[in-house]
Design a protein around this nucleic acid. Structure first.
Length: 537
DNA sequence: CAGTGAGCGAGCTTCCGCTTGACTT
């Protein structure tokens, strides 16, 4: 009589946790990602029929054999891989293997790893959703067709192996190259303007006459006239502004913030985050969902109330996910407020995650933006001139109490309409217009995420790939494209312009959605997109 | 007889996304 039950998940860390929740009759195992995939050394797709050849992923053959042996001994098998397109496909391939030895297989779905959610997933376990699997087939096969059919064009054209093109890497490279072109074409302009420093009691207030002169001599003429004037406050404009707290971290924003605040590369951030996750300090680090467990959010808000005061505690709220989010996991947040990592870099990253999580649940920062218009009264001036001073006053810090946010407070005191100001100094200042900045690894990831290009599990690997191909190098923290990159992008734009549209992934994603909803046949979608991207094939 | 060149075939490169631990540098 068989009594044992088998529960299969993707991540070994999750398996360990779930093992604790389920009783002794459960064996919990992990697939560690995909078990079957297209072969890497050949296309693996029969193009007319779109029949694909799937082989075992390296090292997974033995794992599958082990799972089968266990399944044979068990009464029931539950497949609890992630609740998204990739997870459903892993479940599909696992079922294909296991049903040869045990047909009693069910698909269990859960969105958080709590005893309650896991047990419920078992009670409600059902069938595999083939529409999700079909959407994954379409995604996988299109990526393969694009990558393996476009890349050889580059080898031939540039007589250089190892060059590559792909749905993600090529638009990403285009961003970097086009930014570089903007920088090269940028002609800096120097301009001159009149600046004054006024004494307000003990403090100083800077005001400018915002007319940009190309010639310092023109500025000099107006400066002399202004110097002889008197300065009267003609209008004060006060605007209150609430600066909302940031959303909690997801993979892309964590990589971007750790890059700019801690100087960590996305790769480094991911590997530290993975350790924090495995050691139980944070939630799953590869996610595109802002969802936060409600119990935890309440606990965090209570913590804010106790430690910073009730005024700083925000409301419990859920942030909306991006349209393309697959929503399988929570945001990246501490698991508990009462454990802390020891290791130095883990501590730095954990601290950032902790602060960001708390900040996301705090009250808004309130500021006053005050514009002071100062009329220059001078008989030497034909037309009246108005100088402007901008003041910022922080009324309430809110979430900026604990999370870094650039805000320069320069409130110098009360100023009233009609006040006559005393100028301490009036002079000509100059500024140069600045070219746009190069992408950093962090800002690139953020831009890609906005465009819906790439996924949390691959962001960190992207610049590594572009470097390996000789497309970019890292200077300080900026991404600099090579000459080859310019030529390749030119060529791809000329010959594969559909692929090079920044909206390509989002357009494709909409069609994959239709497959998921059962509205379209996956093979039709693949053929349609393939014909657009590879028209001469 | 040494050097040249045409012709042929073998071997190799490439994608994106899911997940670790077992490798080497």
């Amino acid at each position: 009589m068989k009594v044992m039950k088998l529960f299969i998940v993707e991540s070994p860390v999750k398996a360990k946790t779930i093992r604790k929740f389920l009783g002794k009759e459960f064996i919990v195992k992990a697939t560690a990602g995909h078990i079957r995939d297209l072969p890497s050394k050949e296309l693996g797709i029969e193009e007319e029929s779109l029949k694909a050849k799937y082989v075992y992923v390296k090292g997974k053959k033995k794992l599958v054999e082990d799972l089968k042996k266990l399944a044979k001994k068990c009464k029931e098998v539950y497949i609890g891989t992630d609740p998204d397109r990739e997870g459903e496909t892993i479940a599909f391939f696992v079922r294909e293997e296991i049903r040869k030895v045990n047909p009693n297989i069910k698909r269990a779905i859960f969105f958080e790893i709590t005893p309650k959610a896991i047990k419920e997933s078992i009670r409600k376990a059902g069938d595999i959703n083939m529409n999700l699997v079909y959407a994954q087939f379409a995604r996988r096969i299109l990526d393969r067709l694009i990558g393996y059919k476009v890349s050889p064009h580059l080898w031939r054209t540039f007589r250089s192996f190892r060059l590559s093109a792909g749905r993600v890497q090529s638009p990403a490279l285009r961003l970097i190259v086009e930014r570089e072109m903007e920088i090269r074409e940028f002609k800096p302009k120097t301009y001159y303007y009149v600046k004054a420093v006024f004494n307000i009691g003990e403090n100083k207030l800077e005001a400018v006459y915002d007319y940009r002169y190309e010639n310092p001599s023109d500025a000099q003429i107006i400066l002399e006239k202004i110097k002889k004037g008197i300065f009267r406050v003609s209008e004060i404009d006060v605007k209150k502004e609430a600066i909302s707290p940031p959303k909690p971290f997801i993979t892309s924003s964590l990589q971007a913030e750790a890059n700019s605040l801690l100087g960590f590369s996305p790769e480094k951030t991911q590997s530290i985050a993975q350790r924090l996750y495995e050691e139980g300090f944070i939630t799953y680090p590869r996610t595109d969902s802002y969802r936060m467990n409600e119990e935890k959010a309440k606990e965090f808000i209570e913590y804010i109330r106790k430690n910073y005061g009730g005024k700083y505690a925000g409301k419990i709220r859920q942030f909306k996910d991006a349209k393309l989010s697959q929503g399988a996991h929570e945001c990246i947040r501490p698991v508990s407020l009462y454990v802390y990592p020891e290791e130095k870099e883990q501590k730095l990253l954990y601290d950032l995650i902790l602060k960001r999580t708390l900040a996301s649940l705090m009250s808004a920062c309130e500021v006053e933006r005050i514009k002071v218009y100062i009329e220059v009264l001078s008989p030497y001036l034909k037309e009246s001139i108005t100088m402007v001073a901008k003041m910022v006053r922080v009324l309430f810090k809110g979430w900026t109490l604990i999370y870094p946010y650039d805000i320069e407070e320069n409130y110098v005191g009360n100023i009233k309409e009609g006040d006559i100001l005393k100028a301490e100094d009036i002079f000509i200042d100059k500024k140069r217009t600045q070219p746009p900045p190069r992408y950093t690894e962090g800002s690139l990831v953020k831009t890609l995420e906005k465009l819906g290009i790439g996924r949390p599990s691959t962001y960190a690997m992207l610049t590594g790939l572009l470097k390996k191909r000789g497309y970019v190098r890292l200077n300080k923290r900026s991404l600099v494209p090579s000459d080859v990159a310019f030529e390749v992008i030119d060529y791809l734009k000329e010959n594969f312009h559909t692929l090079m549209e920044y909206s390509f992934t989002a357009d494709m994603e909409r069609k994959l959605d239709e497959i998921e909803e059962g509205k379209r046949n996956w093979k039709e979608v693949v053929k349609e997109i393939k014909n657009k991207v590879l028209p001469y094939d």
